[in-house]
Nucleic acid binder design. Structure first.
Lengths: 241, 241
DNA sequence: TAGTGGTCTAGACCACCGC
DNA sequence: CGGTGGTCTAGACCACTAC
C-alpha cells in the first residue's frame, strides 16, 4: 500500500476496511486474537501507528476489544438490544441485564407503507420483509415488535432462518446477509394499548405502553431496518447506557 | 512538562485537564479559536501529537470543534436536552428541533429520598436542592420535571439564578457552579398520569405519559443531578440522535 | 524474559483556508 | 502564499501479561 494509486481515502480508513473484510471472511472468529499491531502493519505495508488508528475506530465501534499485554480480540456480536445502546433492565435494584427471549409470530413478504418507505429510503410499495415477534423476559411476555426490512438486502429471509438463529436478528443480518448494523435512531412515545396489543401483551386495553420506533443503519448511514416495539413497562424500564 | 514528577496519568490526559481548566477560567470563549496545535504543544512542553490526542477527546466530547485549515474552536455549551443526546422533535415530518421553554414552579431545599440518595451517591436525608418545572413547546405545555441536586455542589442555587439563566440548567451548572455534565443515563417507562401530573399537563387522569428518569454525571462518573420528567407524547416523540 | 498494547516524540507531507 | 488541521512514518520507552 506504500505507493498505491492516487489516494482517495486515508490509509487508516483503507486498513479499517481491509480488517472488516478479513473479519467478514471469517479469518478471525469471536474472541480470537488478531495478529499484533506490528504484524498487521507489515501485512498492509503501513506503519504501526496507522494500524493503531484503524484499530482505534473498530474498538470504539465495539467490533474489537483490546487487552494490554495480551492483544486485540474480536468482540462478540452484540444482540439487538445491546447494539441499540438499550437494555431491558429491572426497574428497582437488580441492575443485571436479563436475557430477552423472542418468539416469532409472523414472517412474510409485504410492501412498504408510506412511513416505512421514507425511513428506509425506498419507494412506496417496494418489496419488504415483515416480521412480527413477541418478546419474553423470564418467561413473561413484556413486549412485541414489528420489523420491516428492505426486500433487496434480505432476499432469502424466512421463518426457518430466524428460528435457526435463536432470534438474534442483528447477528443474523450480519452473518447471513452481510449487513452490519452500526447505529440506530429511536423515537419514544407513551401510548394506550390497542386491542391487538393488549391481547398479545396480556394487559388491559388502553393501559400505557412504551412505543419505540427504531431505524437501524449500516455503514455510510444506509438504513437497513425499521422497527416498532410496544413495551409493557409495569415491571421493567427501557434504559439507556 | 518534559520531566515532571513521577507520572500518574498519561501526558495527553494532563494536557486535556489543563485545557479544560483554561476553558473554565474563561481564557477562550464560545466560538473563539484556540492557539494552533504547535503553539499549545510549546506552551505545555509536549509534542504536537500529544496535544492532538487531548484535542481529539475534547472534540468527541463536543467541548471543541475543528475546521481544517482554520483552527480549533470552543463549542457552544449544549442545553440540557441536547447534552442528554435527546431532543423533543415533531413526530411526523418536521425534523427541525424545536425550542423548549421551561417555567420554574419550585426551587427549595429538601432532603434526599431513598431513590435519589442511591442515584446521587449521598446518604439518605442529605441536603439537596429540589426544582420543579413545566416545559413548553411552542407555548403548549408538554412536559414537567422534578430535578434534584446535591446540596454541597450547588450551594447558592435559587429561583433567581435559574430565571436569570433563562432556564438552561446544564449551562448554569457549568458557568456558575463549575459542574460540567459529561454523560447521562436514562430509564424510560410509560405511565398513567396521576392527578397532579394530569392537571399540570392538561391531560386526562390515567392517560399515558412518558416517564424519563435521568442521572447526569460529571467527569469521573460523579453523579451530579437526578431528574424525573413526565412527557406528553400525543403530539411529539422523545427521540434519540 | 519476551511479546503485547499504550504513550510520546520529531519530522514529513498533504488538503484546505484566507489573504 | 503561509498557516491551519489531517495523515503518516520510524523509532523510542513504558506497563502489563504470560511463561
Amino acid at each position: 500500500m506504500k505507493h498505491a494509486a492516487p489516494r482517495r481515502a486515508p490509509l487508516y480508513q483503507q486498513v479499517k476496511i481491509l480488517l472488516l473484510e478479513a473479519l467478514e471472511s471469517g479469518e478471525w472468529l469471536q474472541n480470537d486474537v488478531l495478529p499484533s499491531e506490528f504484524e498487521l502493519a507489515a501485512r498492509f505495508e503501513v506503519s504501526q501507528g496507522t494500524v493503531r488508528k484503524a484499530l482505534d475506530e473498530l474498538v470504539t465501534e465495539r467490533v474489537l476489544y483490546r487487552r494490554q499485554g495480551k492483544g486485540t480480540f474480536v468482540a462478540a456480536y452484540l444482540d439487538e438490544w445491546d447494539r441499540a445502546g438499550f437494555v431491558l433492565s429491572g426497574f428497582n435494584r437488580t441492575q443485571e441485564v436479563e436475557k430477552v427471549q423472542p418468539e416469532l409470530l409472523t414472517c412474510m413478504r409485504a410492501n412498504a407503507s408510506e412511513e416505512v418507505s421514507e425511513a428506509l429510503g425506498v419507494r412506496r410499495g417496494a418489496p419488504v420483509v415483515f416480521v412480527k415477534r413477541l418478546l419474553r423476559l423470564n418467561g413473561r411476555v413484556m413486549a412485541m415488535d414489528d420489523v420491516v426490512l428492505p426486500g433487496d438486502l434480505f432476499d432469502g429471509l424466512d421463518s426457518r432462518k430466524i428460528r435457526q438463529n435463536g432470534g438474534a436478528l442483528y447477528e443474523l443480518y450480519h452473518r447471513v446477509f452481510g449487513v452490519r448494523v452500526v447505529r440506530t435512531r429511536e423515537q419514544l412515545r407513551a401510548e394506550p394499548a390497542a386491542s391487538d396489543e393488549a391481547r398479545l401483551l396480556g394487559v388491559d386495553k388502553g393501559s400505557p405502553l412504551l412505543c419505540v420506533t427504531r431505524v437501524a443503519y449500516a455503514a455510510e448511514d444506509k438504513p437497513v431496518e425499521w422497527r416498532r416495539s410496544w413495551i409493557n413497562t409495569e415491571q421493567h424500564a427501557y434504559s439507556s447506557t
